[in-house]
Write a protein that binds this DNA or RNA. Structure first.
Length: 874
RNA sequence: GGAAGUUUAGCUCAGUUGGGAGAGCGUCUGCCUUACAAGCAGAGGGUCAUAGGUUCGAGUCCUAUAACUUCCACCA
């Protein structure tokens, strides 16, 4: 045996992973003799490195995959990474900035070269991090959203949708990020509260006789105003409807229109209408046929329509100057402090500008309907269920999806414009000839697609779509998707409608939603707070298994968890416990010829641990099936530490340290058997250490990864089980006396038992566990020693006090016990005297209470007798 | 404005169909007992947010309230 005295993960984790990988253990095959199980890894962005959220996500997936693999499924876990169009481009641009470069300076081709270099670097890094974690994914199918065949899937899908009329190009109000200089989808905008003002500005009527005061948060967009709207029922302004106003700071005239959209109570009750720069105003503009004046450039500066004084000013600067000018010219009536939400870019956090722009859109309504139905019908199941509400809420109110991005890194839109007549042709490849003018050269659309357009296809593009592959046939729909709740809209929802639309089938049956990993104080981990914890550093210090176990335990589906270092440490301690228990077992197997389990009679404690093991297997298995991973982890932890280490190993020592060689061999063999089962149960959670130990066990030369998951072997061990439970009660009670009476563990006891239980088979163990000189079953009347007494279910334990204990202390102890018993008796009596409890509660529950009461009364009388006895002596 | 979640030991959290409140960490006591001091044996600590209700019985189910968190919407 060559196991170190303490668990040292660094000495084997990397080595084992390389071996697993080299031997192809992670590779799953299309195998119709096995049941398929398939998980698609949510592809990490190639923007940087993995964080705790990834560690959690991948740990959970790996647990499920390893569990299913051991259950005999052909378990395929497809890994991959996401090109993360905008996020990556932002990073690359930042990096270029440090070198004094801009996108324009190096051009599209030059930029793409850089971007692919970036991809190579970070992709490799991420893959290595996943390996460090122990992820057993099938690297032979590693995918990247911009791989050739995944890109082919994107083009195919785009063309299909276009031909069905579900993709269109048009001028709409979209969210524009002036920093990233691209359009964003609604989902990519986050609303953040900002302190601002409501500026009240007077717009005079053309005749100069009246004025209308408007309230706005965006004075600088005044140049794009094409009307002022009031509520048709607002009597204050009804005489003005239809009149013309002079737009301050300009020489333009704009009409006053009436529209229900305006709320009389808010602000002044009059709204300036800027159709090109506000989604609501855009709608009002359509209703009233107003011109759309775009007064802002793509970089957030005002354009020439604003006049020489304001042209090229940044929107923030322009706001100040406009306000100053309005004030100076007497138009500014009031400044009212006002807090409101402003949309910000989810990548660079600059304020998003609603702008009218020509973009590509996906028509969502027809796609959403079947996607809603799939969840309503239960075909797709969210775990926990409540997230389906989140899903419905979004899907049922969905708007068309803006999918074009003015970026370079991504899938270029497969749309071509005839160089001669400008005719649009949507096609997977460059068209040969213009259908309109027969010209033969085309220019491809400059834009790329929203990054989520390609990840929406992930469950089938990674399995070979658009080709009809055996993999798709076998593994699609996939079994379960494991992801955090923050990308339900971005990703989960879009995979669902994409799968249904393009494959004709849902992409996965179950969606396991987990929370996000927060810091010790419950804050979100973020760059700006600098509170992120690097999983690799944790692995370096505690080992991957410790990190995995700490992430997997104490969690409930859908709820957030905190990363707490002391928790990792306690998991490391647990693994060390497993390590040392294994060392103990191995030590005792050494040099012995172990008889095969099944060929010898089991001792009472063997039968007992077998019962406990069976319970544990049943619970762990069913919890894993239900995705209750935290509960499964807690159960195995408890079984290993409490039942196996604290009790079974301790009980086994009397046999192991006896002189009976056969007995010793049998015990070693059974210990080894139980340990093996334990290692299998632990393996999905802590794969490295279980493998390392497993390979050290006698007769195990092959990986534990592909061993069969333990199953429940029902045994009829009732009587032996009870006997061991009795033993435990005696031991506990005796230890209690020692602790309370301050009797050193090294001091041997003599113990008398008054009981009907046959203790012959458990007596040697009992002696060992309570460190007793003798344990005798006696007739109470024959004892002449002055004893301290403990009453447990089924026995009185009497320990001669001699000079071990002091009488006054013993009296206090006994009185304390009596008080407890009295309390219990009261509780029982209360219940049993309640006639409705007796008549309505299940019989078993009532009987149990009756039995307890009888025992407590017995205990009570023993204690009273004892107390009197001691009082008499004192 | 709409929705969801949380509220259990000093801290972080479990508690799956309603039947005597749990774990880890921390605290206190005693132990280097030949697998493990990353350990062993114990102890202490909770009107399960509040108020009602259903029930023989509620941390668990229902209603209301409060505090906190998150998501969605975005009235300028």
């Amino acid at each position: 045996m060559d196991m170190a005295k303490t668990y040292e993960p660094k000495s084997f984790e990397d080595r084992l992973y390389s071996e697993w990988e080299a031997r192809g253990y992670f590779r799953a095959e299309v195998d119709t003799t096995k049941r398929p199980f398939c998980v698609m890894m949510p592809p990490p962005n190639i923007t940087g490195q993995l964080h705790m959220g990834h560690a959690l996500n991948n740990t959970l997936q790996d647990i499920l995959v390893r569990f299913k693999r051991m259950q005999g499924y052909s378990a395929e876990w497809v890994p991959g990474t996401d090109h993360a169009s905008i996020a990556t481009e932002v990073k690359i641009v930042e990096q270029m900035k440090e070198e004094g470069l801009t996108k324009d300076m190096i051009g599209r081709d030059g930029f793409m070269v850089r971007a692919w270099e970036w991809k190579e670097k970070y992709n490799t890094r991420i893959v290595n991090q996943l390996k460090k974690l122990g992820s057993s994914c099938d690297w032979s199918r590693l995918a990247f959203t911009m791989d050739n065949h995944l890109s082919a899937a994107v083009s195919k899908v785009f063309v299909n949708l276009y031909n069905k009329g579900l993709i269109y190009r048009g001028s709409r109000i979209i969210n524009w990020c002036p920093t990233c200089k691209t359009a964003l989808s609604d989902a990519e905008v986050e609303y953040i509260e900002h302190d601002s003002n409501l500026w009240h500005i007077a717009y005079p009527t053309v005749d100069g006789e009246d004025r209308l005061i408007v309230a706005t948060t965006r004075p600088e967009t005044l140049f794009g105003d094409t009307a002022v709207a009031v509520n048709p029922n607002d009597e204050r302004y009804s005489h003005l409807i239809g009149k013309m106003l002079k737009l301050p700071l300009t020489d333009r005239e704009i009409p006053i229109v009436a529209d229900d959209y305006v709320e009389c109570e808010f602000g002044s009750g009059a709204v300036k209408i800027t159709p090109a720069h506000d989604p609501n105003d855009f709608e009002v503009g359509l209703r009233h046929n107003l011109p759309i004046l775009r007064v802002m450039n793509d970089d957030g500066t005002l354009n020439e329509l604003c006049g020489e004084r304001y042209n090229t000013l940044d929107r923030d600067v322009a706001r100040k100057i406009v306000v100053d000018d309005l004030k100076e010219q007497g138009y500014l009536v009031k400044i009212e402090p006002y807090t409101h939400n402003t949309g910000c870019c989810y990548r660079c956090h600059s304020i998003v500008e609603p702008i009218v722009s020509k973009q590509w859109f996906v028509s969502m309504k027809p796609l959403a309907e079947p996607a809603i139905e799939a969840v309503k019908s239960g075909e797709i199941r969210f775990v926990p269920e409540r997230f389906s509400k989140t899903y419905f809420n979004w899907m049922e109110n969905i708007k068309d999806w803006c999918i074009s991005r003015q970026l370079w890194w991504g899938h270029r839109i497969p749309a071509y414009y005839c160089d001669k007549c400008g005719e649009l042709v949507v096609s997977e490849t460059t068209p040969d000839i213009c259908p309109k003018c027969a010209h033969t050269t085309f220019s491809q659309d400059e834009d790329v697609l929203d990054t989520w357009f390609s990840s929406a296809l992930w469950p089938f593009s990674t399995l070979g779509y658009p080709d009809k592959t055996a993999e798709l046939d076998y593994w699609y729909p996939t079994t379960v998707l494991v992801t955090a709740y923050d990308i339900i809209f971005f990703w989960v929802a879009r995979m669902i409608f994409s799968g249904i639309e393009h494959m004709g089938q849902i992409p996965f049956g179950d969606v396991l939603i987990h929370g996000i990993v927060r810091d010790e104080q419950g804050r979100k981990m973020s760059k700006s707070l600098g509170n992120g914890v690097d999983p690799l550093k944790v692995i370096e210090e505690y080992g991957a298994d410790s990190l995995r176990f700490s992430l997997a335990s104490g969690i409930a589906p859908g709820s957030d968890t905190r990363y707490i270092e002391s928790r990792v440490e306690s998991c490391r301690n647990f693994i060390n416990k497993v390590w040392n228990a294994s060392r103990f077992v191995l030590m005792n197997c050494e040099g012995k010829t172990l008889p095969k389990v099944g060929t010898f009679e089991l001792a009472p404690e063997d039968k007992w641990i077998t019962c406990r093991l069976n319970d544990a297997i049943a619970e762990i298995t069913s919890n894993l099936e239900k995705y209750e991973i935290g509960m499964a982890a807690g159960r195995i932890y408890d079984f290993v530490w409490t039942e196996f280490c604290d009790w079974y190993i301790e009980m086994s020592k009397s046999a192991l340290y006896s002189d009976d060689e056969d007995l010793k061999c049998r015990k070693a063999s059974y210990l080894e058997y139980i340990l093996t089962q334990i290692l299998k149960l632990l393996h999905p959670f802590i794969p490295f250490v279980t493998e390392e130990i497993y390979l050290n066990l006698p007769n195990h030369t092959d990986t534990i990864m592909n061993e069969e998951w333990p199953s429940v072997n029902a045994g009829e061990f009732g009587a032996e089980h009870d006997r061991v439970e009795f033993l435990r009660d005696v031991v506990r009670a005796t230890r209690n006396v020692r602790a309370e009476m301050n009797v050193a563990p090294s001091k041997k006891l003599r113990v008398y038992l008054v009981t009907d239980v046959d203790i012959s088979t458990i007596k040697p163990i009992m002696l060992k566990l309570i460190n007793a000189e003798t344990v005798e079953v006696v007739d109470k009347a024959t004892i002449s020693d002055k004893c301290t007494t403990v009453v447990i279910l089924g026995a009185e334990i009497m320990i001669p006090m001699g000079d071990l204990v002091e009488f006054d202390k013993e009296l206090i102890r006994l009185e304390g016990e009596l008080a407890n018993v009295d309390k219990e008796i009261k509780r029982c009596e209360g219940m049993l005297q309640n006639e409705r409890f007796v008549s309505k509660a299940p019989e078993a529950v009532v009987n149990a209470e009756r039995e307890k009461l009888a025992k407590y009364r017995e205990t009570q009388s023993v204690l009273i007798g004892k107390i009197n006895e001691i009082k008499a002596i004192m």
